[in-house]
Design a protein around this nucleic acid. Structure first.
Lengths: 238, 238
DNA sequence: GTCTATAGCTGGATAGAC
DNA sequence: GTCTATCCAGCTATAGAC
């Protein structure tokens, strides 16, 4: 889509994120760039956002962006990497809680919450509604595979969740559990990424920003889905 | 993102889709353009696709695209409008079937199928896996609001589905029904738009292309979700 | 380290020959 | 109606002055 850059060569000196010391002067600029990029990538997508817009919004000169992050895609990956660990840690913590629960019904609910709540929370917190939208966009973007960020960051924890499901629902086939996971993820991602359609369609009854109400409804629905749904195993050949 | 075009002026003579008569010469070219555009928009998104790529893939001269469709966005809307009625008609037909069913449990299942099956079918049919991905992308694209295609084409049938849910689940609050709808839609959209992650994560167990197996699992999950989930109504003030 | 200026492209759109 | 040649805005990335 631009001057062919087969090898995305690293920035000249790779000024890693504030190695130590109080803080170099440029650190503030870097943070402003990241914040601006997060918002713009969320609003307008990777292709729909130009480095110039980011520099403008961050009030830094154009060249600083490439200086600090090497390339537009480097900046994107950095935006992604900045908050991914947060969500992943929260999911892991949720799973640990679920692991301690003995009542299978409550355990299932905790597993679902481990997956759903950190994301809805991030969506709702004034901290970063933008990041949730980037995440949601990434899973349905074919170029996501080229970038590989989803697989790199999120596949491992996804496997952990399916593992956990297997322990509370031992009578299900692996196929059922995987489809259950996909339904959970799809619901969550869709709601996270919502751009106003949910509120419009519901005449204001459903507001994804209302983290508590949203969690309650969504968790209840997904809990019922996983608890009660059975799909009869199908014969191998038609 | 390009030469500022405040008023997207119509094509010079608006050569409407083959008015009548056997077919003008250019009709074949138009169809090739639409087919190429559908595929490319699905693979690479609106911003990631250039009119030149479309013209190249359709094997028509560059100028023909703008001649027939006025602008890149005009072409996009045409791609969208081409198949939307198909899905909507199928959903309506599904709802009509559900309306005739008296057993509430089977009725609920038919409503869910009315929403889910046409889309999964479109995803699976070799006819147009691309369109399903465009659709999925559109609901999570903030620019979708600018284009307005989702609201224009799909909001009405969405309301019809929620209406139908209200008749089979009369004891639920409107809020519960709307959240139920969003969970259904989210699951469906996510699965439709999948770009390989589902199959990768499940080690090949789940394949969205396998329309029959996918429908069975997803419908079973959503049916259980709507049938069994209850969210206690919350007091108005905290 | 920081930033201005610009190189080297691709983008959507169109004028004007046929 | 059809298509070639071209316009020029905007893009990413960088060279080179400070």
């Amino acid at each position: 889509m631009n001057a062919s850059n087969p090898a995305p060569r690293a920035p000249r000196s790779a000024p890693r994120a504030a190695t130590a010391r109080s803080e170099k002067a440029g650190a503030a600029a870097q943070r402003r760039i990241l914040a601006a990029a997060e918002k713009l990538f969320a609003d307008r997508g990777f292709d729909g956002t130009s480095v110039r817009q980011i520099a403008m919004a961050a009030k830094v000169p154009l060249a600083l962006v490439n200086y600090h992050f090497g390339s537009k895609e480097g900046l994107y990956r950095e935006v992604f990497a900045l908050r991914a660990p947060m969500i992943i840690d929260q999911r892991m913590a949720g799973l640990a809680l679920a692991d301690m629960e003995t009542d299978p019904d409550r355990k299932l609910e905790l597993i679902i919450k481990a997956l759903v709540v950190p994301n809805l929370h991030m969506r709702a917190a004034e901290k970063s509604p933008a990041y949730a939208r980037i995440l949601a966009r990434e899973v349905s973007d074919p170029k996501s595979n080229e970038r590989g960020v989803m697989a790199e960051f999120f596949d491992p924890v996804a496997q952990r969740i399916i593992e956990a499901l297997r322990t509370v629902l031992p009578d299900r086939t692996l196929e059922e559990l995987h489809w259950g996971y996909q339904v959970m993820l799809g619901s969550m991602v869709y709601i996270m990424a919502d751009i106003g359609r949910i509120e419009r369609l519901s005449g204001g009854l459903c507001r994804p920003e209302d983290e508590k109400a949203t969690s309650e409804h969504v968790v209840a629905l997904l809990h019922a889905a996983l608890k009660y749904a059975r799909t009869p195993p199908r014969p191998k050949a038609g």
